[in-house]
Amino acid sequence: MTFNRRRSLTGLLFLAPYAISFVTFIVLPIIVAAYLSVMQFDLTAKGSIHYVGLQNFKEAWADQYFWSGIKATLSFVILMVPSMLVFALGTAIGLNAMSRGRNAVRALLFLPGLLNVAVTAILWGWFYDGTFGLFNFLLKKVGIGEVHWLSEKALAMPSIVVMTLWWTMGGTAIVLLAALQQIPRHIIEAAALDGAGKWAMFRKIVFPLLTPVLLFVVITNTIGAFQVFGQPFLLTKGGPELATRGLVQYIYETAFNNYRMGYGAAMSWMLFAIIAVFALLQYRLLRRSVA
């Protein structure tokens, strides 16, 4: 046996534990999910599982709750991703400009990300409470009446977005800060010598250099936002009037409250298709904007 051959055989042994896990918990579930999505399968009537073709997908297409779920999820994505991007980029630029105490502030911004979703929801549920909440207490102090943060249809989703921003913005800002710091100083200095203004410098030099990272940030945040579940589930239970019941929550309730496993799997595939389309679109658009 040659040295390289032996090495690659050893390599297979090194790869095996992860590969087995990957096949068992990712590849196999994908196959099962595909199988389930064309079956009628109710857990409470176990013996009755049978093939129904594309009926689950057709049902979703005609299901008003499926569409209200998509609407809620989309409204979260549309509010969340751009505000996250603007806010995190602004913070990163601010941090980059700091001359003292940058590391301490960076740590403070990251701290909320350590809280789990249950704790975050308890805390903000108290802030947002209509009568006993902290925000309304502060508003009353300055003479503004009660605001129904979580139970006014127009406000519920934005309130959840603000909470999520506080919760997750730090990590994204740190990633962007790292990218900013990697831009070689001499490029900036050369541009400054050429008399470039601050805005022009940002637009012509910093932004293009940041694009790969921005692409990464936008796509990962979009994928994450499409999967929003914990925050509305714990804060509003999906209300008011289903305004915050996203698709993942509906899938969860379909599969685990109404026991319709097949229908749940079919809707999961549809969610995946939507995410894939969005991720691809963003990739294309952002790539083009640099070129």
Binding site: G130, T131, F132, E146, H148, S151, E152, P240
Partner: peptide
Amino acid sequence: PPPENQLGWVGYRQKK
């Protein structure tokens, strides 16, 4: 209380 802000049970136990 307005539908957006039912005090409900908590309001009762708070004597509101």
